[in-house]
């Protein structure tokens, strides 16, 4: 237990970094995801096909490769990102492809009659999408979105490989400094993630029930 309490401030400081990573990446992924998802649902091929390419390409890649790619290749290309920002970009862009598919499915689930009614009132396609279709689609997509965000939170641990000093990186440092307490230290990390993610999923479910009521 001493192993944990002595290193608690050091490890918990990483949680703040993890939270920043997660929040920034979620914002980025949400913006990109809704945009690409809307494009994916567009009638015009010129709009739709790039979106499909984006989604398929990213979804074929393992996240870890994507993270290494963003970090090393972007810097070779002259975008000199710190590990933290490379991590935000990698997590955000990666997750956006999954969100886009969810958004697309959500949009497809809104009955055609809604489109027709809005267009019949003279609303433009973009306005119809923004004010009529997306709000309805979002309600249906909520559970899938939450599980995607939880996945993102779990995935923040992977940016430790490019040296971001987030929670799990600090846990690993603590672990190799102590050397003798892997069960206590790693168990502690596992419990932290579990409490965070499980709590979040329960909270989301309660919110959903309230909205449905």
């Amino acid at each position: 237990m001493g192993a944990i309490t002595d290193n608690l401030p050091f490890m918990l400081a990483g949680l703040w970094e993890t939270a920043k990573l997660a929040v920034l990446a979620i914002v980025l992924s949400a913006v990109l995801g809704v945009l690409v998802g809307a494009m994916r649902s567009a009638r015009s091929r010129l709009v739709r096909w790039p979106a499909i390419g984006y989604i398929q390409l990213i979804r074929s890649a393992p996240l870890i490769v994507f993270i290494l790619y963003c970090y090393f290749v972007l810097s070779d290309l002259g975008f000199d990102l710190t590990p933290f920002w490379a991590g935000v970009v990698a997590l955000g862009v990666f997750t956006s492809a999954y969100l886009a598919e969810i958004v697309h499915a959500g949009i497809a689930s809104v009955p055609r009659g809604q489109w027709e009614a809005a267009r019949a009132c003279g609303l433009s396609q973009a306005i119809t999408m923004r004010d009529v279709v997306l709000p309805q689609a979002l309600r249906r997509m909520a559970p899938a979105l939450v599980s995607e965000f939880i996945k993102l939170i779990k995935d923040t641990s992977l940016v430790s490989i490019i040296g971001v000093f987030e929670f799990f990186h600090r846990v690993e440092v603590t672990n190799s400094r102590l050397l003798t307490e892997p069960f206590a230290v790693l168990g502690f990390a596992a419990v932290c993630y579990f409490v965070l993610n499980y709590g979040l999923s329960r909270f989301a479910r309660r919110l959903e029930l309230r909205l449905d009521a």
Binding site: I150, K154, D155, T156, S157, L158, S160, F168, V171, E172, N175, P182, F183, L186, G187, A189, A190, Y193, F194, N197, Y198, S201
Partner: peptide, 19 residues
């Protein structure tokens, strides 16, 4: 099921290998 789905795979792998 709940526990192992809510903890990152990396954490689990490190647990198995270093623990």
């Amino acid at each position: 099921v709940e526990f192992f789905r809510n903890v990152p795979l990396l954490v689990q792998l490190v647990f198995w290998s270093f623990g």
